[in-house]
Design a protein around this nucleic acid. Structure first.
Lengths: 337, 337
DNA sequence: CTGAAAGCGCTTACAG
DNA sequence: CTGAAAGCGCTTACAG
């Protein structure tokens, strides 16, 4: 079942069949009809590879995230899918499971696929070697006209970016918590090798500093970027001795684990300790207590990055869209005991 | 940057360059080295479309789900990604936003893409016309060697399938709730046009029936398959007058909304009313109270369907893997007040 | 083992 | 408007 078969069935040339189906050039109405009918009758399905090869252009975009099962990435992916659907683009998905090597091999695969644009979603790794390889891969990709946009990473990769204001958001959150009366804080941080974590911690810290408050190093616990990571980090924090009235988890997902750990330890939130997260993934408003957080418009992030990557712009000029986070005070934070 | 360039740089023929890079046939070691080196130096990236065209085989699989932002699908997608990664397959993702037409256009697009296998994830629609179109699309796809597997749909589509035991799971859940002492029930159902909903409702109902208990029609409320759908359905149920000691929401996502609605209405769960869901999406164990549910191994579902689609089997023989749901009693259910 | 050549299924100048 | 032909970048019998 090829275009050739359709052309033969319609009694026209290959070229005419192609034109009739794609409607680029004018084709006599009756011929177009015949071709269309033949294609329909034969259930013709154009070979996307042949077409991509002949046009040397592609209707695909690539999206690489760390874990499509995580509500943060799932929310962003939802926005990406919406934008892609609007532009009739197919989406090739990569989920790295937080393995830097896998990220690079996805990028390379997508380059081979000649996707029109590539989206990297999520924090990068603070890893010199990885940064080198990725940059090289992306440069090669762009050298042949590929477009790259990133969400939430800036180190190491020079590309169009949608950047949540991690620093600013965390600082704003800190100020809100200070306003509630808190003066001693602890932080459940994700892996410090992730730029997002570093930024959020820095923002939080600097806002405290301007009030003359410093984070004790024992009150910063590093954990995996998962619910269980938050749970375990909290247990470790309690083991070290909690010396804070308020705990900031660098993502909501971790905060969920923290909430469980506090509950198990018999600590009430917010009566005994206040708890805040970051991202505003959908479910946290249904927790008990609902979680204070810095809200990021996840779907928007995805849509905007996709649109940005698709919008041709004079190259060598990197565009950056900064996205403000919105502090949302919910019942998980209150005045210090 | 094509294979031709690499061949020239290495001083060999196109054919030899191809063989050296793909390692299918034997190539003299020194030639292979030269080709590899040249490819490396030139940062050669094989054109996936050209390759797919020449081999008329493809390293891609397609996955179509209803909403990648929903934790149920995100969980399954996670499993799919794991399996795909194991087989070095790229994944093309479709998210229908619950639009039947979009599902068909995705299927058609993936057929054009000549993907090796196609996964349809999630309940089908009870819609004659849609079923016709989809079946036609899939038949055409399979006629050319395409493989199809579905998760959780059986009506209308004849294909390899991983089927959660929706009926059995719901029935088992009902029996557990009966054992707790409940004798009056209400159901928050998703759209009755979804086979999953119909099956879960039927299973629940039949288990009750064998105890001589019948669901009042006023106590079955249909809502969207979302958190807000569950919230609104619950409000409607309360408006009609709750005449049950236990409420079954046909998915966890809906149950989350129900929990919020009950809380707002001043009803305590489970003291005033028990609540149970279905699926066991990750977050529900962290709700207050944690949600009773029928646990489905979401990631497994995805992995198994992918493996099944990849495993060539004598065609015309449809394979079905049934996956038992596990009733997990948590604190959202208790004895009737 | 190696190379020249045909072929995969389309698109698109180039003539007419 | 229509068609013959070249070309997109690979793979793979077929000879040597």
């Amino acid at each position: 079942m090829t275009l050739g078969d359709v052309a033969r069935a319609a009694g026209v040339s290959l070229a005419t069949a192609s034109r009739a189906l794609n409607g680029a050039t004018q084709v006599r109405a009756d011929l177009r009809q015949r071709v269309r009918a033949a294609a329909e009758r034969l259930a013709y399905s154009p070979n996307a590879h042949a077409r991509a090869l002949a046009k040397s252009s592609n209707a695909g975009v690539g999206v690489i995230c760390h874990d499509i099962g995580d509500p943060y990435f799932a929310g962003i992916a939802r926005g990406v899918m919406r934008a892609a659907s609007r532009h009739d683009l197919q989406v090739i998905l990569g989920s790295t499971f937080r393995d830097p090597l896998r990220e690079i091999s996805y990028a390379s695969m997508m380059r081979g696929q000649r996707v029109r644009a590539m989206l990297l979603v999520g924090s990068g790794f603070e890893n010199r070697e990885w940064q080198e390889s990725l940059r090289r891969e992306l440069d090669l990709y762009r050298a042949t006209g590929g477009r790259v946009a990133v969400i939430s990473r800036h180190r190491g990769v020079r590309a169009d970016a949608v950047l949540p204001e991690n620093r600013g958001g965390a600082a704003e959150l800190a100020r809100s918590l200070l306003a509630l009366g808190h003066r001693s804080f602890a932080v459940l941080s994700g892996p410090l090798s992730l730029t997002t974590v570093v930024d959020r911690l820095a923002g939080f810290r600097s806002a405290l500093a301007s009030w003359g408050i410093h984070l004790l190093s024992t009150q910063i616990v590093e954990g995996a970027f998962t619910r269980d990571g938050g749970y375990e980090a909290t247990q470790e924090l309690l083991r070290r001795g909690l010396r804070a009235t308020c705990v900031f988890a660098s993502t909501d997902v971790m905060a969920i684990g923290a909430l469980a750990a506090f509950r198990e330890a018999g600590l009430r939130v917010p009566d005994d300790v206040s708890l805040a997260g970051f991202d505003d993934i959908p479910m946290i408003r249904d927790l008990t207590p609902p979680l204070t957080t810095v809200a990021l418009p996840l779907e928007d992030l995805g849509e905007r990055a996709m649109e940005m990557a698709l919008l041709p712009e004079r190259p060598a000029r990197v565009r950056v869209e900064r996205v403000q986070g919105q502090v949302v005070l919910r019942a998980s934070t209150g005045p210090p005991p």
